[in-house]
Design a binder for these strands. Structure first.
Lengths: 253, 253
DNA sequence: TTCTTTCTGCGTATGCCATACGCTGTTATG
DNA sequence: CATAACAGCGTATGGCATACGCAGAAAGAA
């Protein structure tokens, strides 16, 4: 009744609490043979090596030389493990922007950092996200993004909207390129041949009379040429930041 | 060797070919008791009623009064069924924009149409997408989007980028609101209480010294107030279209 | 010391899932 | 009326997450 200023509210699963450094080792009982971070690291190792689909409780346990059910002493469910994998997979945030950087420089750096993480660990895109972030490093990334907008005249809600907009864009773009990579691996085709193959397929399927605009796109050979995907990313990002800039100007004026 | 101008290229699964109206009924053998559309409709009915997780081959078969394995005479795999479910779930596209509409009016209408579909059928967001669209109605939506940009000076590749940008935004925004809805249902909480609960939780977890910007957001009560989510959507959409407008102006000038 | 509590590790079992395989019966054509 | 080509589907396989409860370890209480 008197102990903690708990405020009640939603209760965090034990494994997540341990990610926040709360929760000490219980006084009795045998010494734990593993720990939440050990398990999460093993799971990340599996995902890095063989993709998210290979991450099963039994596979992670095997990676640790333990039995499947032993893991459940540390994580409440596979979903919980996935949440912790995301937190660990993103890694620590970059830290706040340099003091001389304007918001656009900062957010550009921020977006590229996430872009890079998702390029290296595309399995992060396949983890079903079930809600807003509650893990320490995830919130660290959010903090960094907010810091970039510190000097602007945006309202706090607008800052959040801007971050959501950008992170959403980064994830979408990463999803598209990872789909090409994974599709080419599955079909045993060169990645550079994926989009041309797709263009030929669609061209064979559609009637130019019913899909004139699409037919024009195909005829232009747009899907067949290989723009460097990083240029494509930078292009779209600048489009979005232009929109943000317009908003910031208006709020400042 | 001489028959069709086939061009070879990737081969389409039979069920997808049937969605394009290719593929006639074979001359011999018993009359089929069902059809690809029947199965897809049943699957969509299950998803509408109980969510995507409830869509299993056996559940869909039960819906049709058939045995599980009977479905495999019509669809090659569950993934194929999912692809067809997406095509059917989106429904037919709106059709091209009115002849007097400018690109911005057209794309706004286009984005809101997808927004509405995803609001009604949030399970569409949970279907893992494995590549660019190859089904008729999906390509119909793409055609409509391209038509909106017909009068502009954008290159064909830029038109595609713009559509990808917008559809990505629509899906992201829909994902966020659907997460709130699903989370509240899972936790047995009023939807309006979700974000305030989240804000309290994060406030309890973070150290204001290490997360100053985030702390400021929480103090502003931003996450607690219930902006009408449609306003939020419209706001972000306008931000993106501002960016597009800047691009179109530059190309026109 | 010995007993008790509380924990860890994990073997077993349950119930779900997608789907490979092969049998039975149907249909239209030769 | 024989036969080829197909539809329906029963059965079996191998995967999965995870509920449950037991055996033994550690640390405090007696």
């Amino acid at each position: 009744m008197a102990a903690k200023t708990d405020d009640s509210g939603p209760v965090l699963p034990p494994a997540i609490e341990s990610a926040w450094g709360l929760r000490e080792r219980p006084p009795k009982g045998p010494r734990p043979g593993m720990s939440v971070p050990t398990i999460v690291d093993a799971a990340v190792r599996v995902a890095d090596a063989d993709g998210l689909a290979a991450v099963s409780m039994s596979r992670v346990a095997k990676e640790l030389g333990a039995a499947t059910m032993a893991l459940y002493r540390y994580v409440g469910s596979k979903d919980e493990l996935l949440m912790l994998m995301v937190d660990s997979g993103y890694g620590p945030s970059l830290g706040p922007p340099g003091p001389r950087d304007d918001w656009r420089t900062g957010l550009t750096r921020w977006a590229w950092a996430e872009h890079e993480v998702l390029r290296r660990r595309s399995w992060l895109l396949h983890v079903p996200i079930s809600g807003p972030p509650i893990t320490p490093q995830q919130l660290g990334w959010m903090e960094d993004g907010l810091r970039c907008l510190d000097g602007t005249a945006l309202g706090e809600n607008e800052k959040m909207s801007v971050l959501l907009l950008i992170t959403g864009y980064v994830r979408n773009e990463a999803t598209l390129t990872s789909q090409i990579a994974e599709g080419s691996r599955a079909a045993g085709v060169e990645p550079a041949e994926m989009m041309p193959g797709y263009a030929r397929l669609v061209g064979r399927l559609i009637d130019p009379a019913r899909f004139p605009a699409l037919h024009r796109v195909l005829s232009a050979g747009v899907l067949s040429q290989d723009d460097h995907p990083d240029d494509e990313f930078a292009f779209g990002l600048d489009r979005i930041l232009d929109g943000v800039e317009a908003l910031i100007q208006r709020r400042a004026g």
